[in-house]
Structures are given as structure tokens and as C-alpha cells.
């Protein structure tokens, strides 16, 4: 049996707090000097990893609705998307404030010559546009185009992967795992789309 209105509210709070846990653990390690020899990198990569993980979770909700026939995963779509944006923001903030030390000189030198940083910035601008239009009011105001706009989350998933692949020196194991997950989720979407199209066509 599914929980009632109050039950869902409580579950949402729990999911919210659980999703905050990586942030709390990483900042706790930072304050206690537990991030190892290269703390800036550990924080930078840590937040980046979690941004990608929440993006994957967010992308998985609609296909899991399709597969299970249950509607409840959709309740968490906005929260997971915003958490992906939250961790991506921290990832970018660590880069600008700690890695570049807010130096415009360093930014000018490092960013334009680095394809993976540019791809990261593109990904962030996509996530930003989704985050600012994530409210109910924006959803109403944009109507059908909101749905189109929010399909960009798949584009963001792909550019995030490219960002990851391009910074690797030789061992692609980890980004390949994420690529597998995102490709699988995209495949479910595509199958659903073509089935629907086929149904319409047969009518």
C-alpha cells in the first residue's frame, strides 16, 4: 500500500536529508583536514561525482515509472534535479574559488585552452536553465515548451559525460560506467517514444 499525503511529505524530508549527506561528509572532511594530499582536488572531484550521480538518479525516475507502472518516482524528479544542480554548483564554486583562487589571470589562462572545462561550463549553463525554470509557476507559464526545455536534461547528461571523458588520461573505466547507465536510460526513453509513435501510426 502506498503512503498517504503525510507519509509522502515525511519520505520527502528523509530523501532530502539523505541527499544532503555527501555534502555534509565532504565538508566535514574538509574542516578536519581529512581530504588527503590534494584537498582541493578531493573536494572538486567529490562534488563533481555527486552532481553526475544525482543527474543519473533524476534521469532514471521517468523510465522507472514506465517500467514499473508506478507514478510515485515522479514525485522526486524535481528534488533530484535540483540536487544535481546543487552539487554541480559546488563543483564549479570549488573550481573558481579554491582551484583558481578567484584569479582572473588564472581563469583566462586555464579555461579557454581546456576543452573539458568548457564542456563543464556548457553543462552547468544547461543545468542552470533547468533549475531556474523548475518551479510550478514557471512550469505553468511555459506550458508545452517547458516539457521541451526540460528534455535538455538528457543533453546535460551527455555533455557531463563528455566533460568527464575529456579529462581522463588513459583509464576510462569510471566514466564508462556512467555512460552505460545514461545510455541505458536513454534507450528506455527511445523505445517508449517509438512504441508510442507506432501506435499512433497504426490508428
Amino acid at each position: 500500500m502506498l503512503p498517504g499525503k503525510k507519509g509522502w511529505a515525511a519520505i520527502k524530508v528523509i530523501v532530502f536529508l539523505l541527499s544532503l549527506l555527501p555534502f555534509l561528509l565532504l565538508t566535514n572532511d574538509a574542516f578536519n583536514d581529512q581530504l588527503g594530499a590534494n584537498p582541493v582536488e578531493a573536494l572538486h572531484f567529490g562534488f563533481g561525482d555527486w552532481a553526475l550521480r544525482f543527474l543519473c538518479i533524476g534521469l532514471a525516475l521517468s523510465p522507472s515509472k514506465t517500467i514499473t507502472g508506478q507514478n510515485w518516482p515522479m514525485r522526486f524528479r524535481r528534488m533530484m534535479g535540483l540536487y544535481a544542480f546543487f552539487y554541480a554548483s559546488l563543483h564549479l564554486l570549488v573550481f573558481i574559488v579554491l582551484d583558481l583562487s578567484l584569479s582572473w589571470e588564472a581563469f583566462k589562462d586555464e579555461v579557454p585552452k581546456s576543452p573539458y572545462i568548457l564542456m563543464g561550463l556548457l553543462t552547468y549553463s544547461l543545468l542552470l536553465s533547468l533549475a531556474v525554470t523548475s518551479t510550478k509557476r514557471m512550469q505553468k507559464r511555459l506550458g508545452r515548451s517547458w516539457i521541451k526545455l526540460h528534455k535538455l536534461v538528457y543533453v546535460a547528461g551527455i555533455t557531463a559525460l563528455v566533460h568527464y571523458f575529456w579529462l581522463i588520461k588513459s583509464d576510462y573505466t569510471e566514466p564508462l560506467i556512467y555512460a552505460g547507465v545514461i545510455a541505458g536510460l536513454l534507450a528506455v526513453r527511445i523505445v517508449v517514444y517509438f512504441r508510442r509513435a507506432a501506435k499512433l501510426f497504426s490508428l
Binding site: V40, E41, L43, D99, S101, D109, E110, K113, S114, L167
Partner: peptide, 22 residues
């Protein structure tokens, strides 16, 4: 001479604190 994918102008010194510039 930068690496084709990143600058070689600066370096992160291991063991330095979070707020130490490169």
C-alpha cells in the same frame, strides 16, 4: 607549453591547505 587539454603554468603543491593558491 601547455598540455593540449590543460595549462601547465601553475601547479597544486601537495599538502597545502584548501585556500593556498597554486
Amino acid at each position: 607549453v601547455s598540455h593540449p587539454r590543460w595549462s601547465q603554468r601553475r601547479e597544486r603543491v601537495l599538502g597545502s591547505s584548501l585556500f593556498t593558491p597554486k
